[in-house]
Amino acid sequence: MFRISNATGGYGKTIIIRDVSLYVGSGDVVALLGRNGVGKSTLMRYATGLIPAIAGTVEIDGLAAPAAPARRARHGLGYVPQGRFVFPRMTALENIAVAAESNGHNGKEAVEEALTYFPMLKPKVHDLAGGLSGGQQQVLALARALAIRPTVLLLDEPTEGVQPSIVDEIAGVLKRINIERGIAMLVAEQDLDFCLSIANRAYVMEKGAIRMETDRATLERDKALQQELLGV
């Protein structure tokens, strides 16, 4: 279970998100929708603790999350950032192992497990992460986040700049780990098809605040809302 209450935050003096509250139940997959620049990424960074809170709280499994990002990770908060940010001069294997070891898990086992979920990484495990293609890096960032054994996973634009076949594969794996391991997810995304394929519920953001909450069925029906969301 994961909850953000009354989050207000931004960069320096500039406030980007204002009084945002949302809730992700255990094993729930929730989409965070909205156009570019409405504050989705800022909200994600707020949730991880990478930007300091001006106001508001974050709860993981019913407990108040500690302030330091590193300690939030140990409380079970996984994060796949927009732009992936893999460790470029480390091998794919090291990227996964370091995440596991930093949280007291066995690195070798974590890598083996990751390769069963993402067989496409197998031929690449000894390559430097910086040399992988965009899609491979995205998969690696996901594998790295899973290696900390999270209970909640935050995904920021996981399909950005990723080729369609890999997008499908990512969607499949996310569904699988959600069912098999009961990991809850909050996905910020612009690709509506992708969201509809994995999420049950969605929040729509506008100008730094939550404008509405909706479910998959409504979203699928409401063409006007779709158009508006995507700015098409």
Binding site: A70, R72, F87, R89, S102, I148
Partner: peptide, 23 residues
């Protein structure tokens, strides 16, 4: 493990923290 953590911390300081490394 220390070596991996150290390299992770300099290459992507924010992400190193976000995956649980006490930089």
């Amino acid at each position: 493990v220390y070596g991996m953590k150290a390299r992770a911390s300099i290459q992507q300081p924010e992400m190193a923290q976000a995956i649980g490394i006490e930089s």
